[in-house]
């Protein structure tokens, strides 16, 4: 992999990020022009108070001045203050991110492992009952809306059977610490995590299945068999190794969506992560918060796309040299 290739990809990623930055600014200026009036509707504000608030929100001056200030602040990782809590947006995001990363990260890893195994066994036994069952299951779970699935699981397992808590990240009354606290959080995470895992597993399974089908007809599989390799060895050493390549891109891109992936599910389960933060900010609307969240979500997707681009040549020698 040449230095030029890496530099090119990194520059490309930064250019995309810069575009998002600009787009983000104008997008939210189109939506809302005067938050002061919205937020303080019905209250009597003096002109001086109004000007002061406008300045605090960074809405004074011309659009160009605002834009320059926005870019400067963003480069210093200052994403402004939340309208709702008046705390810095970056702090709010920083505080909510670990919960989301834990929830969606675990769900992604679980669904990835299970989905890839499902895809391999479905593709390798194409046309069998096993394939049909796995493929239609994948289709069904992939097309199920995750919030709906979440509500069903919540109703059945939390409300009716009482096996799991109905929401939140921990029992506020328990006062448990250390390992017991961690266990409590894991118990709270089970249902939303299951929901997401079911929602994601189908995509991994279907992509892996089609990758397997792509390599299935290759002569080198027959040749490996003709050299005396057993079926499972042919599958694992030759077919899966090659079929994993297209899935690698999907996996990396899916990690990009970890931060933004659970907006609906976090809301259903009141999971205090970035998703819940987003729905709350939408109610306001808390524009600086939304703007900050959008930027972080985009940056994460761009970053993992870059990772996919850089990873691919390491895995596939054909790309390495071309």
């Amino acid at each position: 992999m040449s230095v030029r290739f890496v530099v090119g990809k990194v520059l490309g990623a930064f250019a995309t990020l810069a575009f998002v930055l600009v787009f983000n600014f104008f997008l939210f200026r189109v939506v809302e022009s005067n938050p002061v009036a919205t937020l303080y509707r019905g209250r009597n504000l003096t002109d001086a108070q109004r000007d002061e608030l406008t300045r605090q929100f960074g809405l004074d001056g011309s659009k160009l001045e605002q834009f320059v200030r926005y870019v400067e602040q963003t480069l210093q990782l200052n994403l402004g203050r939340s309208y709702a809590t008046n705390r810095p947006v970056i702090e709010e995001i920083w505080a909510a991110a670990p919960q989301t990363i834990a929830l969606v990260g675990v769900a992604t890893v679980i669904s990835m492992v299970i989905g890839i195994l499902m895809g391999i066994s479905a593709g390798w036994r194409r046309g069998t009952t096993q394939d049909r069952v796995l493929t239609s299951t994948s289709m069904a779970t992939w097309s199920t809306p995750d919030f709906w699935l979440g509500m069903i699981l919540l109703t059945v397992f939390a409300v009716q059977l009482g096996l799991f808590p109905t929401g939140g990240i921990e029992d506020p009354t328990s006062g448990a610490t250390g390992f017991a606290k961690l266990l409590d959080q894991a118990w709270h995470m089970a249902l939303p995590c299951l929901t997401l895992a079911i929602a994601y597993v189908g995509e991994f399974a279907l992509v892996m299945r089609s990758s397997i089908l792509d390599v299935m007809r290759e002569d080198y599989l027959t040749l490996a068999r003709a050299k005396g390799l057993r079926d499972a060895q042919v599958r694992d050493r030759h077919a899966v190794r090659n079929a994993l390549l297209p899935s690698t891109a999907l996996i990396a891109i899916n990690f990009g969506f970890v931060l933004s992936g659970a907006i609906a599910v976090e809301t259903v389960f009141s999971w205090p992560g970035l998703g819940l933060l987003t729905t709350e900010a939408l109610r306001g609307p808390d524009l600086p918060m939304l703007q900050g969240l959008f930027l972080v979500f985009s940056a994460s997707v761009i970053f993992f796309n870059l990772v996919a681009d850089l990873l691919y040549p390491l895995l596939d020698p054909r790309v390495r040299y071309s």
């Binding site: 002569d219 080198y220 027959t222 490996a224 190794r241 090659n242 020698p317 054909r318």
Partner: peptide, 10 residues
């Protein structure tokens, strides 16, 4: 017949 296909690209 096709040596490209008969060799695992990796």
């Amino acid at each position: 017949q096709d040596p490209m296909g008969a060799l695992n690209p990796r």
